[in-house]
Nucleic acid binder design. Structure first.
Lengths: 338, 338
DNA sequence: TTGAAAGCGGTACCAT
DNA sequence: ATGGTACCGCTTTCAA
């Protein structure tokens, strides 16, 4: 590898000048800069990011903490974030973290806090107060995408309102027996999701109450936001109590699983049961699924932008909440009640 | 941040000893090691990865180059790789690269070649000979996952055989007019995919010939391996020439798009047209899609394992080909020809 | 505008 | 088994 010394020697200047020239800093004569650039390019010189980090204290890397990139929302957010970060010359370090306490502990204490990254983006994971505190101590900017963390900046949709809008759509179609598949609080998953499931549940209850509708026993079922979770949750829903005529699922993946369960039970969608989700998953249109669309890649970009802004600023920015609008997309899984 | 000096001072030994003790190297008395560990833990000391990289020449990071994490296969591979890498204490740097030459150029020259990562995993991207050569010069181990790169180790399925098996399944159901949606060579995407689309096409032709079947004009249609690509490709397929009774799609996402196009044309799946894909995408079972299953996360793990093995070895390993078996999964989109 | 040199925080060699 | 100490490659004062 050619190092900065090689370039300096070749041009006949000091390493300090090469460094300044290459990074576009002032106090370099146009002529010198040009020569340095030319030689550096010719020699294929690329600064060692590690050496630069060590000396400058900046890593030019962002850590993204995500439960699972295979879920549509997370993958899409990561995609959007990566796009912007790459444009800006930042690396994206991906940290998958499940609920497992040991792995999680290691992530926060060992990885995020060891000057490995300049800033941290967290998806669907509620850091504990201690984790928040220790991150704060390092001074790394943080942002939560797709949910909220007290005291942090966040980029997300209005989950309560989005959920309520979905339910109102069903109400508008004449449905009065509406169930919800989502993230009803579950001790097992404590800490592994943040505000999102709870807020969507609140939106559901809000819209139901507002319409004067009763939520029957067993109508709030926990899925895990996956298609399989939606499938089993919906089976439970159908096998007990008062059967709903419509289902509002907290994610499209759950909605897709649910529609499978409905058909499996010998019922039709939407004639017997209407279904609506949230996301506008890339495959939803092929399921003809009605949904509340959210622009996941855009959320990722906005989150990344926020972090870069914070890094560019001298003093810590106030936490901001960026709420991105959603849109009702009516397709074939919701219909006027039979 | 507490540094190694702080720990050394506190324990009353040299930084060299602290370094050895913490990394489990020999030549440290059990007693000393224990004291160092205790103090380091108490002080919350974590070695700076950048300083360590600079001194040791090892980054403990792997670069993963992928076209798009939102596609099921890529996301799943990344997930599997990340899991293994994390267990082994390696970071995963995600590089999304489209076909855009400038971005691509920058990726290879600036990022992968600047001692930023110890090894490189590439998905669905055929590096040019120059890129291969320059990577080789850095001595970084490389692996291709989900396809092949001449001279590299690879972890993948047998694409030709898998495609042929899918087609044979259709033939076994009595189909004689079988079309293919896939990656027929397209100058526009030159370089953005590697062996996979071509091999699946070969497998299709192989099985057709073996069964003595004719491939009609217009039966080999280019999709881009996405659902939308499959949709438009299938529309083209249905609107011209001899209509097939079965379609073999090179990915489940294309198959899903295709089935939409079929229904849109007023035809039924599988009564009028049978459809089979490759992947066993997480949502395929909900589409009741017949497919050839491939274990994407496992491919990611194996690829990562391969890289770690190469890093652990003293001399460059010979390129290896790890072929993982696939499995025919018959669901509801394939049926005996009408 | 430019250069010299002191770090940044570890690792690894060579003594002891 | 342990310590001293040159690096690793770049950034950043401070002087010139």
């Amino acid at each position: 590898m050619t190092g900065i010394k090689d370039v300096a020697r070749e041009v006949g200047v000091s390493t300090a000048t090469v460094s300044r020239a290459l990074r576009g800093l002032p106090r370099v004569s146009p002529d010198t800069r040009e020569r340095v650039l030319e030689v550096a390019t010719r020699m294929g010189y690329v600064a060692s990011p590690h050496a630069a980090s060590l000396a400058s204290g900046q890593t030019h890397a962002i850590g993204v903490v995500v439960p699972n990139v295979t879920r549509w929302f997370f993958g899409s957010v990561v995609h959007g974030a990566e796009e912007l970060l790459r444009e800006e010359g930042y690396d994206l370090l991906l940290y998958t973290v499940t609920g497992e306490p040991a792995a999680r502990q290691r992530l926060f204490s060992t990885y995020l806090l060891s000057k490995r990254v300049d800033a941290v983006m967290v998806l669907a994971l509620r850091p504990t107060p201690e984790e928040v505190a220790s991150l704060e101590r390092t001074g790394s900017p943080t942002v939560a995408v797709g949910g909220a963390v007290p005291g942090w900046s966040s980029v997300r949709i209005d989950d309560v309102e989005t959920a309520a809008t979905a339910v109102r759509h069903l109400v508008g179609l004449g449905h009065r027996r509406i169930a919800h598949l989502g993230g009803v609080p579950d001790p097992e998953h404590a800490g592994l999701d943040f505000s999102t499931p709870g807020d969507r549940l609140i939106g559901y209850r809000l819209a139901m109450e507002e319409a004067g509708l009763q939520i029957e026993e067993g109508w709030e079922v926990t899925g895990d936001f996956t298609a399989h979770g939606g499938l089993t949750a919906c089976r439970r829903l159908l096998s007990a109590g008062v059967r709903p005529t419509a289902i509002f699922a907290g994610s499209d993946e759950m909605a897709i699983g649910a529609s499978h369960a409905v058909r499996e039970a010998g019922l039709r969608v939407p004639e017997d049961i209407s279904i609506i989700g949230i996301d506008n998953h890339e495959l939803s249109e092929f399921f003809d699924l009605s949904t509340m669309a959210q622009p996941a890649p855009e959320l990722g970009r906005l989150g990344a932008r926020r972090l870069l802004d914070a890094l560019a600023s001298d003093d810590p920015l106030e936490p901001t909440e960026t709420i991105v609008p959603t849109q009702l997309i009516v397709r074939g899984t919701t219909a006027r009640v039979g």
